[in-house]
Design a protein around this nucleic acid. Structure first.
Length: 964
RNA sequence: GCGGGGGUCGCCGAGCCAGGUCAAAGGCGCAGGCUUCAGGAGCCUGUCCCGUAGGGGUUCGUGGGUUCGAAUCCCACUCCCCGCACCA
């Protein structure tokens, strides 16, 4: 028997010792350069991650067997905040993180060593190194044919030199821009915060308000809104009487805002001097001016105004804002609400809502309608008011049209003028952008509230550059994308891609060469790294230090630019070395295929294309992308916290690499999200065990040439099957149909071979040689999926080479016999028919089945019809046969025949008469065994026994039956 | 909302691009049988409904349409999932 764990280790060692997958340029051989994403090295990978790598490896191995020189490299991504975040939290002794990382380390290390390793994790690079090498071990144990010499991490100084070079290029090309940018920010930590840094509100986004200035006394009331277009409908301003406001000086202006808003403004680059504190009540009853039409507006009290929200001052648009209407109605209704304020009740009663947006389905004042409809009592009914606000906002934004009283915007759709309104107001110095988190509370891990800060000198990569974009589109159009449905996703991504912030103030990574305060962000440093795999082992072998990796070095080796003598002198790298590296690049590049996850389309893969077109000449642009969806487990997303996480490291022990590879690659089409089900893995395991049994039996059979043996129909059938399977499997793999490939080469072929072995007696002289022939081909077909088992059997069959490096099989045409395959289908179909009839006759005792092969003339008729290639309808087919004088006299029978074809909608499988008769006769035993009946095969033209006159009903491929 | 994808016989999931042999692969589950000391092991059979002759009926989100013929093509509707930018 075969111990899968043992053979996996054995062959992994052999491959390693023989450097079987270390790929160097071989000029006379065609190359295939395949990449998959490097994993992020801050956590263990799980069974789902291996889907992409397995599919990549199947392809790599297939291409290698097809004669390509294949390079399949791997590295580790460590850039950004995750790794450094973990290090920080371990340094801070965060108990949750300590626990998590203890269990992570325990996956690979004995219990006694865990704390020692954990102690090193205060250094981010220790984490990166640990996981990077752990992941390498995991991937090796799955038998991936990776060239590990080229492994690196993205924080290695050599890689940083490469990224530096790339960004210098982008900068020179003018693709790097600078501007201000709002981010979630923790004032206490003095840093931007990401999802990982948040204690509460981890999915918070930034909401963009428009602050609008309402002239008031010696300055402005600063209101804030999400709907600046409503400023035309303002009737008054709301102030919370129960809070204290601040009077501040910003530049040359005086602003009034709530106290919490002052801090927000500071973070958003509005530095202020605090002049005074003013109770809300002091504003009430005074007036301010509307920002654009210069109308007098009364300042009124409203409790719904939250000083913590936005600027703490709200302008009122009762016609379109439910809150405003509810509050206005409250004070118009009752004088009592105004007690303690110096307010003219009549003036308040005189306030009329101003309608400025027309919208179908609503009347003059939509907010009033909604407040009435939802039976909102007063301004304290926050839940209902929020609901009404959202409904109305949505409706007005997408369907609303500005009315005539809205100046330059009259007649236009709300959704289309929003930006124009903002710039219109800005031009008149009446507005500015104002940000805050879109939810509350949002707190940093340090415990402080998170605010929005505007960073003044953020660096962007400008994917919106029209020339760059059209280059990228050109590249995309030339690329092969599979599954093809995803091309549209690329196209729409390219459409909306614009400026993208490309650097941060923290985390691991490479510093921006032209502004060293900034660290290049994790997606931006991973766009053309496929090229780096071609350099790194040369850099190491030649002991080139990072300082030698100048701009000119990369320009020469990657782009072929510059004078080699000068570069060699300046960098102190010998000319021969430079030439060798350059040759490596010219040989392997471009990347022939990138296989990765669908989720990368809107970011990494798009950047991958953009950056290649920016940096490299067209001949180095990537050729193809294939994609797969992710993996869930028993219907749920896998995550460490849910406890439903199967670490990749456990695969060899729990399943074995070959079984894993088999299961994960056939579980679903690339474009489906697949579900890892333990039951299904087991099914695959059972099938695999059957295969192993057959393989190991076959490996004991001495090699005997097949041409010395007389072959039965059964043997000819299975020999044909294996050869047509080569053809079909090759076609499947050429078209990236991995699932079909495995169905054909594993599940179906296994069924066929078992069927064959059941039918051919052990003692028969043809059985063993045929089996051995089949297995010797079969191994090769399966090597890409289950390389360990196949190597083992290959060796046992007496070969000294690696089957991984053997040639992919080519179908042997002399064995392909479609007639026999079809004939067997006729047999199977006949068996099924007999079973069905037998089932229906369960009351009667049946002992014998008479099988009548169709009369001659019907085969002739069939051939005639097929040759005519007419639609399978009675009116099309009849004339064809009626033209034939011999057939014409069988008018009635012809009609029946044609009816049958028309009903079936075409022709079923059939063979010529003698084949049909032979195959039924040869398989008499089989039919008898399957049906439990004695089988009599008769010729429909001269039946010996046919009491019910069935022979005449037989059709080609569908013999008539009589059971008695 | 915008953009992308999808609703298939209990469940998962092929098929749809290239309409006919599709009651629609395969797996899981379920049922029956065999094997076994026993078994959550293995093997075989069945699994939309009806049927004492290989047949018939009704199905592929809903409603229309094109066609001799539609799960597959067209139109409308409906429901679900994902992405929308600093988490990689």
């Amino acid at each position: 028997m075969i111990d899968s764990k043992e053979i996996e280790t054995k062959w992994q060692m052999r491959w390693r010792e023989a450097k079987a997958f270390e790929a160097d340029p071989i000029p006379q051989r065609p190359k295939f350069y395949l990449t998959v994403p490097y994993p992020y090295a801050n956590a263990p990978m799980h069974v789902g991650h291996g889907r992409t790598y397995t599919i990549g490896d199947i392809l790599a191995r297939y291409k290698r067997m097809q004669g390509y020189n294949v390079l399949y490299p791997m590295a580790a991504h460590v850039t950004g905040t995750p790794v450094s975040g973990v290090a920080n939290r371990i340094r801070d002794k965060d108990p949750e993180v300590l626990k998590l990382y203890r269990s992570n380390i325990a996956i690979w290390r004995p219990k006694k060593d865990v704390d020692t390793v954990l102690a090193t994790f205060i250094d981010p690079m220790a984490i990166a190194q640990f996981f990077s090498s752990a992941i390498e071990g995991d991937l090796r144990k799955l038998g991936y044919s990776i060239d590990w010499r080229r492994n690196f991490t993205t924080n290695d100084p050599e890689y940083q030199a490469f990224v530096t070079w790339q960004f210098n290029h982008l900068y020179q090309l003018g693709y790097i821009t600078k501007g201000s940018y709002p981010v979630l920010f923790c004032v206490n930590c003095g840093n931007a915060v990401g999802e990982d840094d948040l204690l509460q509100g981890e999915h918070a986004k930034i909401a963009e308000f428009v602050a609008i200035k309402f002239p008031f006394e010696d300055g402005y009331l600063i209101t804030a809104t999400l709907r600046p277009e409503t400023v035309y409908g303002v009737t008054n301003v709301w102030i919370n009487p129960n809070t204290i406001y601040a009077k501040i000086q910003v530049n040359e202006e005086i602003w009034f805002v709530s106290q919490p808003a002052v801090r927000k403004l500071v973070n958003q680059r509005y530095h202020s001097k605090r002049l005074d504190e003013i109770p809300g009540t002091e504003f009430i009853g005074k007036t301010c001016k509307s920002p654009i039409e210069d109308r007098e507006l009364l300042i009124l009290p409203a409790e719904f105004v939250d000083p913590e929200n936005a600027t703490g001052i709200v302008y009122s648009v009762p016609s379109h804002a439910p809150f405003d209407w509810a509050a206005l109605r409250d004070i118009q209704k009752s004088k009592r609400a105004l007690q303690g304020f110096k307010l003219d009740f009549d003036a308040i009663k005189a306030i009329d809502p101003i309608s400025i947006i027309a919208i179908e389905g609503y009347g003059e004042h939509p907010a009033i309608e909604l407040v009435d409809k939802l039976k909102i009592k007063d301004q304290k009914a926050t839940t209902k008011l929020n609901e009404a606000t959202e409904t109305l906002y949505r409706a007005e934004f997408y369907e609303g049209i500005m009315k005539d009283n809205t100046g330059p915007f009259a007649g236009r759709k709300v959704s289309q003028i929003k930006d124009d309104v903002i710039s219109f107001l800005k031009e008149q110095n009446r507005a500015f952008q104002f940000f805050q988190p879109d939810q509350k509370p949002v707190t940093c891990r340090c415990g402080n509230d998170v605010v929005v800060a505007v960073l003044p000198d953020q660096w962007f990569i400008n994917y919106g550059d029209p020339q760059w974009k059209s280059q990228a589109r050109k590249a995309l159009n030339q690329m092969f994308i599979f599954p093809e449905v995803y091309r549209r996703l690329f196209e729409s991504t390219f459409d909306w891609l614009k400026e993208r912030p490309a650097a941060r103030r923290r985390g691991l990574g490479t510093r921006l060469p032209f502004d060293k305060k900034w660290v290049i962000e994790a997606l931006s440093d991973s766009t053309i790294y496929m090229a780096f795999y071609l350099l790194i082992h040369h850099i190491r072998v030649n002991q080139i230090i990072p300082q030698q990796l100048s701009y000119a070095f990369f320009d020469y080796v990657l782009l072929g630019k510059g004078d080699i003598t000068t570069i060699a002198e300046k960098s102190n790298i010998p000319e021969e070395t430079l030439v060798e590296i350059r040759k490596e690049v010219e040989y392997w590049y471009p990347n022939d295929l990138r296989h990765t996850a669908v989720g990368h389309i809107p970011n990494h893969l798009s950047f991958f294309i953009f950056h290649h077109t920016a940096i490299f000449p067209e001949k180095f642009w990537p050729k193809a992308i294939t994609l797969n969806e992710f993996v869930i487990r028993e219907g749920e997303k896998m995550s460490k916290s849910k406890g439903n996480f199967i670490p990749m490291a456990e695969i060899p022990r729990r399943y074995g690499a070959d079984l894993y590879r088999l299961y994960i690659s056939q579980i679903g089409d690339l474009q489906s999200i697949v579900d890892w089900k333990e039951k299904d893995v087991n099914t695959a395991r059972r099938r695999l065990n059957r295969l192993i049994r057959i393989f190991s039996d076959a490996s004991k059979i001495p090699d005997t040439p097949l041409d010395e043996i007389k072959l039965s129909m059964a043997s000819r059938w299975i020999l044909s099957k294996i050869n047509t399977t080569i053809r079909d499997a090759t076609e499947s793999l050429e078209n990236f149909r991995f699932r079909s490939y495995i169905l054909q080469t594993f599940f179906q072929l296994l069924n066929h071979v078992e069927f064959y072995l059941r039918r051919v007696k052990k003692s028969s002289s043809e059985r063993n040689p045929v089996l051995r022939y089949i297995v010797s081909i079969w191994i090769k077909l399966l090597t890409p999926v289950m390389p360990h088992l196949c190597e083992e059997i290959w060796e046992r069959l007496g070969s000294i080479s690696f089957v991984s490096l053997e040639n992919w099989p080519i179908p042997d045409e002399k064995f392909i016999d479609e007639n026999i395959e079809k004939a067997m289908e006729v047999v199977t179909q006949t068996i099924n028919d007999i079973k069905e009839i037998k089932g229906l006759l369960k009351d009667k005792k049946i002992g014998t089945v008479h099988i009548f092969v169709s009369p001659d003339w019907k085969y002739h008729a069939f051939k005639k019809l097929i040759k005519a290639d007419a639609p399978p309808t009675v009116k099309d087919l009849m004339p064809i046969l009626m033209k034939d004088a011999k057939l014409k006299k069988r008018g009635k029978e012809i009609n029946e025949l044609v009816q049958a074809i028309a009903k079936a909608g075409g022709y079923w499988t059939f063979v010529d008469k003698s084949t049909e008769k032979n195959v039924l006769t040869e398989n008499r035993d089989l039919i008898q065994a399957e049906t439990g009946l004695t089988v009599e095969i008769q010729d429909g033209d001269k039946p010996k026994k046919d009491p019910e006159n069935r022979a005449a009903k037989a059709l080609p491929g569908r013999p008539a039956l009589f059971l008695e």
